[in-house]
Design a protein around this nucleic acid. Structure first.
Lengths: 172, 172
DNA sequence: GTCTATACCCGGATAGAC
DNA sequence: GTCTATCCGGGTATAGAC
């Protein structure tokens, strides 16, 4: 579940994270991960049951990092805006990890328990405990972020302005 | 570019659309498309240069269908809400096509010219011609839609309520 | 226990024969 | 225009060396 990893398991996850950061999702193959560690792909299956469980470990770590950013934002005078800023900054710092975390159905059973809820709790709190509003705000932030990362907005678009409009409108 | 297709080309795109609808994105392989037409995969390359160009034809058709829905919504008393309703309905009716249209960098050069802009123009108009607001609204709608389709919201979440909150907040 | 070699099936794509 | 044969690169199961 991403928490109780052997030292070798941690090395594998670290190698996978480096690969993902450096070369993107399509470089994240069992053969390439193994290559980084001077071993063969089938050997990885002694440490992880399949590729998805390695990805789940990466995603779990991503949620922990995101929650840590949110925790710092909580002290801000405008927590909703601060959370949005941290969300955007996280995704821009690690776009490939962000895509891995958000652009597919989540394999919740494979995740370290509680990591998703921990991040979500900060968001709900920043939006005054209003779950419906928090979900709308998350949808807005994810939409802006992923469309931005994927280059879906037109070239000249003022994305700072769009972010501002959305955050203003959705403030609790 | 998806407009001037030979009759055989149209058959190929139709077979691809059926496959995508019926079995999802991972079933959309050159071998499976060819199988539906009683031919071999390499023969497809006489009609399309690569798989991405077949996908681009599907995406182009998706944008045309979406724009047609938006055109109907334009006559509504509350165009912004009507557009959002149509957007959500389109994605729920054809979730695999919606993912294909939105969850990767768009290969704009391969698309039928103008189809993306035609759909976008309806959105901007529904939001009073305010491009920043329209982008925020698109981001919200896409975020809600894709998170909903991917099952990312918690099981008991009241998504109708979250949609309502977002649309109210972002109304022009 | 840990790793290797081998192999299977799937994918996209190309070359060349008919 | 369609075929067969083939290449390369994926995930992954199995068997066996150390």
């Amino acid at each position: 579940m991403g928490t109780d990893l052997s030292p070798r398991g941690r090395e594998i996850v670290a190698a996978a994270a480096d690969l993902l950061e450096g070369e993107g999702a399509q470089a994240l193959s069992m053969r390439r991960i193994a290559e980084r560690l001077g071993m063969r792909a089938p050997s990885l299956y002694r440490h992880f049951p399949d590729k998805r469980s390695i990805e789940a470990a990466l995603v779990s770590q991503g949620f922990r990092d995101l929650a840590a950013r949110f925790a710092q934002a909580s002290g801000d005078g405008d927590p909703a805006a601060a959370i949005a800023r941290e969300y955007r900054a996280f995704a821009h710092a690690r776009p490939h990890l962000y895509r891995l975390m958000t652009t597919r159905p989540l394999d919740r059973g494979a995740l370290a328990p509680g990591v998703e809820d921990a991040a979500a709790a900060h968001v709900v709190r920043a939006f005054g405990g209003d779950a419906d509003l928090a979900r709308a705000a998350w949808a807005f932030a994810h939409g802006m972020t992923i469309l931005e990362i994927d280059g879906r907005f037109p070239p000249g678009a003022d994305l700072d302005a769009a972010w501002r409009r959305g955050i203003e409108a959705l403030r609790p």
